[in-house]
Amino acid sequence: MATNPVLSPSTGRRPATWGTPLTYALALAIAAVSIAPILYVIIGGFRTTPQIVADPGGLPDPWVWDNYARVLSRSNFWQQAFNSGVIALGTTLGVVVLGMAAAFVLARYTFRGREALYTFFTVGLLFPAGAAILPLYLMLRDLSLINSYYAVILPQVAFQLPLTIVILRPFLSAIPRELEDAAAIDGAGRLGFLWRIALPLSRPALVTVGVLAFVASWNAFLLPLLVLGDVNLHTLPLGVQSFSSQYSTDTAGVLAFTSLAMLPALLFFTLAEKQIVGGLQGAVKG
């Protein structure tokens, strides 16, 4: 493994070639299994419920826009998308700020108990977050935070911190000491170094942890289910769930609502695919 960095550049120069027909056949089959159900939902949203009942696997004939229009104009879709957005952004901001501050100390300061503090945070990776949901609800209730954005944001920040610190710390440790020395000679203290040098330099890592926190928050269901009883505060996952049980006979409407709820995640994924995939891979590689 040690020779890997030396040898690997040659792989980059190899031109991509066409694979065998078997390779493509298998790859296409796998892609179909991954994508077909999603396409079915999106296309199904363009059919009417009687069409779907008569021929579950058919194509729209004719294509109807009514389901999508109905969902967008009459349901709480926009309100829920807004709530999801506020909570996801709040979570991301909290995770990035708190995680960066803690990881900076753990990476660039030498003090007694540093490794203990790091271990203390990493234990959170082993912690089954779901198990604590009932007492968490009770605590938020006692703090009168139920039915507020904070009830979702604060615990989500807390649960995302261990992963964030594990990703950020090695990144910050890797900043050469010469840069810190140079900053000190220019009169910047450690905080100046954090703000003016470490922060800009760690942008790629910050984007990664930010994207991971955003996606986790956007998709979250259990915590919002318990702490957001107020319908006006419902996030999209709660909205999809309640719309599908409330209008269970309106299959076409449910399909339309579900695909609209998927759309932001799919868009976001195509935009931030590198960060999501790279972040997950990096986090696990250590």
Binding site: I30, S34, I35, L238, V240, T258, M262, L266, F269
Partner: peptide, 12 residues
Amino acid sequence: LVFVPYVLAEVT
């Protein structure tokens, strides 16, 4: 394409 299902919300 293979990775798309993982990004969708569990509820969806």
